[in-house]
């Protein structure tokens, strides 16, 4: 098949309004339109279906019909560039942020971010969580200078909306209830073993984890967290990190060249 013929076939398969490729045969005297439509349908379902599977809470919030339109528009703008469909849609949250018709759901993009982080966590590398003993072994005086490698499944979703609560309500993990008046939430997503967990972070927690992720020593990460949350509680956040199983390694000295 020439590259040009394949290009015509691909374009026609992606666009329901296009004419069918001219190089198709009329098998048994039958025009190929109805038969070509099978490919169009397969391609449409094959590209939108994985988005519905990856973003069930977003789909639940907007309804199946609106989601189908949203997915079709996303597929047109961002067709997959890889056959790994389980991770298709990393750009979907940003697309949702600016998609028309969603002005009354300003939190929807962040719900999509949380769902995208869940899939990444599901497929991330397996690493045994670091226990409290490893932290104790560092010694309290050296702890401030220690660096912590976070678990490869860890994802942060920082939001101006109560994203974790909204997600939990729409994922069947919390009772449905009013969201007006709930404070903004930062969420941490991770998979220390086989199950993916979503947790709300305490004040300053996201800044703390982001700093650790950037290679900052523990003491510096605490200082950065206090800047955004003066009541940042280091003991609470550190024990939360250890309990969540999302610390992967600890090293007593800072890395040579932490990110600025």
């Amino acid at each position: 098949m020439s590259a040009a013929a394949q290009a015509r076939f691909a374009a026609a398969a992606l666009d329901p309004g296009a004419a069918v490729p001219a190089d198709l045969a009329q098998a048994g005297g039958r025009a190929p339109e109805r038969r070509f439509a099978v490919y169009r349908n397969n391609v449409a379902v094959g590209l939108a279906g994985p988005l519905a599977a990856r973003f069930p809470a977003v789909r639940g919030i907007v309804g199946a019909d609106f989601f189908a339109e949203l997915a079709r528009a996303f597929v047109r703008a961002h067709p997959p560039r890889s056959p790994l469909m389980m991770l298709y849609g990393d750009d979907f949250p940003a697309f949702v942020d600016t998609a028309p018709g969603l002005e009354e759901l300003p939190y929807l993009g962040d719900v999509a971010r949380l769902e995208a982080a869940r899939t990444r966590a599901y497929h991330a590398a397996d690493v045994a969580p670091l226990g409290a003993a490893a932290f104790a072994a560092i010694g309290p005086e050296a702890l401030a200078e220690a660096t912590i490698r976070l678990h490869p499944s860890l994802g942060l979703v920082r939001s101006r909306h109560p994203v974790a609560s909204i997600w939990a309500m729409n994922a069947g993990e919390a009772e449905l209830g009013p969201i007006d008046g709930l404070p903004p939430e930062d969420a941490i997503v991770g998979r220390p073993a086989l199950d993916v967990h979503v947790r709300r972070l305490p004040p300053g927690g996201a800044a703390f984890l982001a700093a650790l992720h950037g290679g900052r020593p523990l003491g510096r990460a605490c200082a950065l967290a206090r800047r955004v949350a003066p009541d940042f509680d280091v003991a609470l956040n550190l024990s939360g990190l250890i309990a969540s199983g999302l610390a992967a390694a600890i090293a007593p000295s800072p890395c040579k060249d932490p990110k600025p």
Partner: peptide, 8 residues
């Protein structure tokens, strides 16, 4: 085709 995966 041309880097775009059509999943069919």
């Amino acid at each position: 085709h041309d880097g775009v995966f059509l999943n069919d």
